[in-house]
């Protein structure tokens, strides 16, 4: 008799399964239509690295010490700087970073002594070739400022 009981129970389980799916039919849709509406980013979102704009000096405070260059596990940062003259601190002229190989681990942001690196909130980066992802952050900041 177990055979018939199993069939009845099986049939009832199928009906119950269908009840679950049909109840979903008129529930509100969960997905967001991306290009039309955009989700708001989480406060701690880690976008690609960029130089912070300090109010007092109006520009970044990168002293080209190379701490981030050494801390980066995938060695994607190259910093160059000059000392205008003997007494003054060093100032960074070029800050190259290869976004396509950066794994966004955040070690550079943590080790920066002058806290001038921060995560941006941009996630729609694109480029036509692999080399277009090698970016000079300083030039980028000049551009965004002007």
């Amino acid at each position: 008799m177990g055979y018939w009981k199993e069939i009845v129970e099986g049939g009832w389980s199928l009906v119950e399964g269908m009840r679950v799916t049909v109840r979903r039919l008129w529930r509100p849709v969960v997905t967001v239509q991306y290009p039309r509406k955009q989700l708001n980013l989480s406060p701690a979102y880690r976008g690609h690295i960029e130089l912070r704009l300090f109010a007092d000096t109006g520009t970044h405070k990168c002293i080209a010490c190379g701490a981030c260059q050494r801390a980066c596990p995938s060695h994607v940062i190259r910093v160059q700087g000059i000392k205008p003259h003997m007494k003054s601190p060093k100032k960074a002229t070029h800050y190259f970073i290869d976004f396509s190989r950066c794994s966004l681990c955040g070690l550079c942001v943590e080790t920066c002594p002058t806290q001038t690196l921060q995560y941006s909130r941009e996630y729609e980066l694109e480029g036509d070739s692999r080399w277009s992802s090698v970016v000079d952050l300083i030039a980028r900041q000049e551009q965004s400022r002007s």
Partner: peptide, 13 residues
């Protein structure tokens, strides 16, 4: 469309 709404998404739009 039916599959979409059963799965809480929209389907072709």
């Amino acid at each position: 469309k039916v599959a979409g709404h059963i799965q809480l998404r929209i389907g072709p739009k």
